[in-house]
Simulated assay, not measured.
Amino acid sequence: MSYINPRVLDEGLTVLDTEATRLDICDTEPSDYTEATDTYSLGNKTSLSIGSPADRSPSGRQVTVAQITDGTIDADGTAAFYAISDTANSRLLAVGDLSSSQAVTTGNQFNLAAFNIGMPGPA
């Protein structure tokens, strides 16, 4: 039987809780910091609230990114991905699909429901 102590998983997820400072919504899936915060970004939110690691069902650990109600839109397009970055170190930390694509228009705000980012336990 495989086993990974929750602390091992938590240390990886804690980076999101302690170092993430910006969430961008993007029209194309970014693969690096510049793509996430400039090339593909349609808008962003700083001052993120990401919780501490907790149990994930059916196994593993996760953090929850709190709901966003006041993200700023900087470009027109269709947002399909989120990207979470550490701006102090110019690091892309996490990328994922939005639960559904959304058309956005410059000058408006975007909202995202709370969502989880997790790591599964061993198989």
Rank of each mutant, 00 (worst) to 15 (best):
Pro6Ala: 02
Pro53Asp: 06
Ser52Thr: 09
Ile68Ser: 02
Val104Lys: 00
Ser85Gly: 02
Glu19His: 15
Lys45Glu: 08
Glu35Gly: 11
Asn108His: 00
Ser52Trp: 09
Ser52Tyr: 12
Asp74Arg: 10
Asp10Val: 05
Thr78Arg: 00
Asp27Glu: 08
Glu11Cys: 06
Leu98Ser: 00
Gly96Glu: 05
Thr14Asn: 13
Thr46Arg: 15
Asp32Phe: 01
Asp17Tyr: 10
Thr72Ala: 13
Val15Thr: 15
Pro6Glu: 04
Ser85Leu: 02
Thr64Arg: 11
Asp27Gly: 09
Ser57Pro: 07
Asp27Thr: 10
Pro58His: 07
Ile25Thr: 01
Val95Gly: 01
Gly12Asp: 12
Ser100Tyr: 00
Ser59Phe: 15
Thr106Ile: 10
Leu93Ile: 03
Ala83Thr: 11
Asn44Glu: 06
Leu93Val: 06
Gly107Asp: 10
Ala79Asp: 06
Asn108Leu: 04
Gln67Met: 10
Tyr82Ala: 03
Asp70Val: 05
Asp76Ser: 11
Leu98Ile: 01
Ser49Ile: 07
Ser101Asn: 08
Leu9Ile: 14
Tyr33Glu: 09
Ser101Glu: 05
Asn44Pro: 09
Leu9Tyr: 11
Asp70Ile: 11
Leu13Lys: 07
Arg22Asp: 02
Thr21Asn: 00
Pro6Val: 08
Ser85Glu: 01
Ala20Gly: 01
Thr14Glu: 07
Val15Glu: 10
Thr87Trp: 03
Ala54Tyr: 10
Val8Asp: 09
Gly96Ile: 14
Glu35Asp: 14
Pro53Gln: 09
Ala88Asn: 14
Ala103Leu: 14
Asp32Glu: 10
Thr28Cys: 06
Gln67Gly: 05
Glu11Gln: 04
Asp27Phe: 10
Gly51His: 11
Val8Pro: 11
Ala20Lys: 12
Ile84Asp: 03
Asp10Asn: 06
Thr87Gly: 10
Leu48Gly: 03
Gly12Met: 07
Ile4His: 15
Arg56Leu: 14
Ser49Gln: 13
Leu98Cys: 00
Val63Trp: 09
Asn89His: 11
Ser2Gln: 09
Arg61Leu: 14
Thr105Ala: 07
Asn89Arg: 00
Arg91His: 05
Thr64Asn: 08
Arg61Glu: 14
Thr14Pro: 09
Ser47Val: 06
Leu48Lys: 00
Leu9Arg: 15
Pro53Ser: 11
Leu16Tyr: 13
Asn108Met: 08
Ala80Tyr: 10
Ile50Met: 08
Asn89Asp: 12
Leu16Pro: 06
Leu48Ser: 00
Glu19Asp: 12
Ser57Ala: 15
Leu98Gly: 01
Ala36Cys: 07
Asp10Trp: 00
Ala79Val: 03
Asp38Ser: 13
Leu92Pro: 03
Asp97Gln: 11
Ile25Ala: 05
Asn108Lys: 13
Leu93Thr: 03
Leu23Gly: 01
Thr46Tyr: 02
Ala66Leu: 03
Ala88Asp: 12
Val95Ser: 09
Arg22Gln: 14
Gly71Ile: 09
Asp38Val: 15
Tyr40Gln: 04
Arg61Lys: 11
Gly96Thr: 12
Ser101Thr: 10
Gly71Cys: 04
Ala83His: 06
